[in-house]
Design a protein around this nucleic acid. Structure first.
Lengths: 159, 159
DNA sequence: TATTGTTATACTCTATAACTATA
DNA sequence: TATAGTTATAGAGTATAACAATA
C-alpha cells in the first residue's frame, strides 16, 4: 500500500510521495514509530524532570536490588561511563543510592529509596498510559502481537 | 512470559531479572529493536561512508525530484538546519545537487546525480538485506504484520 | 595483571535563535 | 512582514582511552 487505509482526507498539505523503497523497510518504520513514542513519553516525563533512560534505570534497579553499575550499564545497553552522571542525578534527588555492601569493595550495590519506589510506581502508570495513547491505532490483540514481534527481534543474538 | 520461548540455554551469564514492567511496554521493546536494526544497518553503510539518514535522504530525493530542503527536512522529521551539512556532504560526493530552478529564487530544487541514483539502487539492496537479517526471528507473514502495525503507529496524528 | 568505577574527551544528533537574501 | 536557506551554538546521547582503588 502506498498510503495506509488509516490515512484520511484531512492530511491537507500536498505531501511528498510515499511509495518509495523506504516504506517497505521495517528499519525505517521502526525508527519513525520509535521516535514518536519516545517524544510522547519524553514529554510526559518532563513534568518529573526525568529522561526515559532514567525511568528505565529506576525500573531495572527496582527489579534487581543490589545490582552493580556494570550490570545496569549492560541492562540499559549503554557504556559504564554513561551510568555515572545518570546515577549521580538519581542519587542527588534521593531516588536511588549507591551502597558499598559487596565483598568486592570496588563495587556498589544499587537500591531505590522509598521515594524512588513511590515515584517509580507512579511513572509505570504514566508509561502504560503513554504507550497506549501512542499505539491507539491498534487493538489489544495487535498490541500483543507487536510486542511479541519486537521482543523476538531484540532478543535474537547478533550471529 | 518472563523469558521468550526463543531464549535458549546458551545465554550462559547470570542475567538480570527480566520480568519488570519494562518488558510489557511497547515503547521499550520498540527502542531496543530499533537500536538493533539501526546498529546493523549503520555497520553495513559504513563501507560506503554513509549514515542511515543520508540513505533516507537519497531515497526521498529520488522519489520526489526537485523538492525543496524544507520538504526534505519534514520528510526526514528533522529540522531544516540539520539538512544543510547533510546535503553539503551529498553534494561534495556528487550524489545529489541543489539547483536554483524555482520561480522563488530563495529555494533550491534537489535532485540525484546519475551516480546518486546508481548508489541508491545498490543501497536499497543492502537495506533490504539488513532488514531481513535483523528480523530473522520472524517469518514473512509476521514481517508484513509488523510493518503494518508500525506504519499505523507513526502515521497516526498526534491528537 | 585484571576489574569497578570514574574522569576526560570527542563525535554525533538534535534543537533553537539569529542572520541573509529573497518575496 | 514573512519565508528559504544558512550560521552559530548549546544540549543530549554515545563511545573510547586512561586513571585510581581494589582484587
Amino acid at each position: 500500500m502506498a498510503r495506509s487505509a488509516r490515512t484520511t482526507d484531512t492530511d491537507s498539505p500536498p505531501l511528498l510521495a510515499e511509495d518509495g523503497a523506504l516504506e517497505e523497510l521495517i528499519g525505517y518504520a521502526l525508527r519513525r514509530a520509535q521516535l514518536k513514542l519516545f517524544h510522547q513519553f519524553t514529554a510526559r516525563l518532563s513534568a518529573y524532570n526525568l529522561r526515559p533512560a532514567q525511568f528505565s534505570a529506576l525500573a531495572i534497579i527496582a527489579q534487581n536490588p543490589g545490582l552493580m553499575q556494570a550490570d545496569l550499564a549492560r541492562a540499559l545497553a549503554i557504556e559504564p561511563p554513561q551510568v555515572v552522571p545518570m546515577l549521580n542525578k538519581l542519587e542527588e534527588r534521593a531516588l536511588a543510592v549507591r551502597v558499598r555492601c559487596k565483598p568486592d569493595k570496588r563495587s556498589y550495590g544499587l537500591f531505590l529509596s522509598k521515594a524512588g519506589e513511590a515515584l517509580l510506581k507512579e511513572l509505570k502508570g504514566i508509561a502504560r498510559e503513554s504507550d497506549r495513547e501512542a499505539t491507539s491505532a491498534l487493538n489489544d490483540e495487535q498490541r500483543g502481537q507487536l510486542l511479541s514481534f519486537l521482543t523476538s527481534i531484540y532478543q535474537t543474538p547478533e550471529c
